[in-house]
Nucleic acid binder design. Sequence first.
DNA 1: TCCCTTTGTTCCAAATAATGAAACTTAATT
DNA 2: AATTAAGTTTCATTATTTGGAACAAAGGGA
Lengths: 265, 265
Amino acid sequence: MVQAAAGDGTVGKALDALDQVASMGRPVRFAELLENSSYPKATLYRFLQTLTNQGMLSYDSRSQTYSLGVRLVRLAHAAWRQSSLAPIARPYVEELAREAQATVHLAQLDGGQVLYVDKQTPSNPVNMYSESGKVGPGYCTGVGKAMLAFVDEATLERALTQQTYHKHTQNTLCSPDELMAELKEIRKTGISYDREEHEMSIICIAVPILSAQDRVLGAVSVTNTTHRTTIDELTKFAPLLKTCAKNIADTAESWRFPEHDKLAK
Amino acid sequence: MVQAAAGDGTVGKALDALDQVASMGRPVRFAELLENSSYPKATLYRFLQTLTNQGMLSYDSRSQTYSLGVRLVRLAHAAWRQSSLAPIARPYVEELAREAQATVHLAQLDGGQVLYVDKQTPSNPVNMYSESGKVGPGYCTGVGKAMLAFVDEATLERALTQQTYHKHTQNTLCSPDELMAELKEIRKTGISYDREEHEMSIICIAVPILSAQDRVLGAVSVTNTTHRTTIDELTKFAPLLKTCAKNIADTAESWRFPEHDKLAK
DNA sequence: TCCCTTTGTTCCAAATAATGAAACTTAATT
DNA sequence: AATTAAGTTTCATTATTTGGAACAAAGGGA
């Protein structure tokens, strides 16, 4: 029962082990990991040692448990800053959350997946780290579709194919065909909706953030629940969202002289 | 001029490469990395490929640049929630910032270095992600010394030796001897000061966060400028700091190891 | 107490993967 | 077309990883 993963080399396998610790969501003992591992005892043991030495894991000798290490936190910091968009977009995202009186998400695209890099709620002043860094599917979220609608053919192709579709709700668009139709529509209007496609009772409106050269930098969205609002209501935020996206794009442009973005692969 | 790093195995070396990408703070090209790398072309190349395959890096074929990847961000996200004191300590840190009316830092130790995992200012409501994850020297910061004073011999040894000392200001303690004397003092009082040792006009008072078994979990500090206060004034916060540290330690204990409360080692 | 079981750690010869100099392929510049 | 720089692949050599098995340590009963 080998993990699905395509483990290239030793590094790949070691990272498998790291993921395993992460997925437990709490400090774990060696034996526990061994049970769920496809690696033999000695091998897994050495991986854990190496990762601990490297600060990717931390080991508590009292309870004999492994947990994720501080080095990852340092890397997280770097990752956030490197994804240039979040720090730049911060003020605009905050403003939008205040004006819309709803949750605002800022996301970027990586492969076919959506990476949330910031989140603002109007009320409580953020627990940012705990939210940004989340990853979601691209094909059934407002921000995901907004970005996919504007990426180049090749990137879209790759995003749609190397993706497993899952019907999260009855509204989820599961076939590439349905999705393509929707994306075409989004390309026309510049606005994308999530009509409870990912999670029941969660709806949102999103717009892409496009550079002057029409490259996709990211997307912003306003999210709410069906108990508090409707798609029609959300539509009213379209102008605000577009302004916000424009502002972010402009700032990003002037901040990074040449075309500079990550995204896509 | 081989890097100081103790790279165990292939995994260690690959993680070196990952760190290098992270430390650039922006998408980087292969040639750039090669220049600053001690690895030969082909080797570095393969590391980057592997890391990219594994999703730890992402490669933008258009600009031919590497940046940190989604998998890393996901891991980092998990790491912050699970392994750092920050989420647990949040309320206490906030409270302290409010009471002291000054900036409060929460830090953990990473090798000989200080890793800031949270920061609170009394006035503006947090820019958390952008601050936490920052790294500083251990030997000349309040939090750094507070933690070093209480770690076990072996860890201290390692921290002091694999460290390059730099005289940031005229007050910086540059020799291990001077430092050891100071640490001894700190061990007695449980309080550490930064007397403009890292940056001019920045002073702070710090205390370690110790587990029930006297393991160093982290440190908290109250920081201010010499224009607004003095070391003597800061001393008044000692009781508040100690209470805060105690609270954090207690909460951490019950949060992290709820069930097994067995033997100590 | 002693024995037994569970859990964690170390060994080492065989198998495998990493290494890196050099050759090769683009891509950009002149 | 020629030149240079940047990125990619090759392959015989070398060093590392591998994992079964032996070993050690830590409870837990009886």
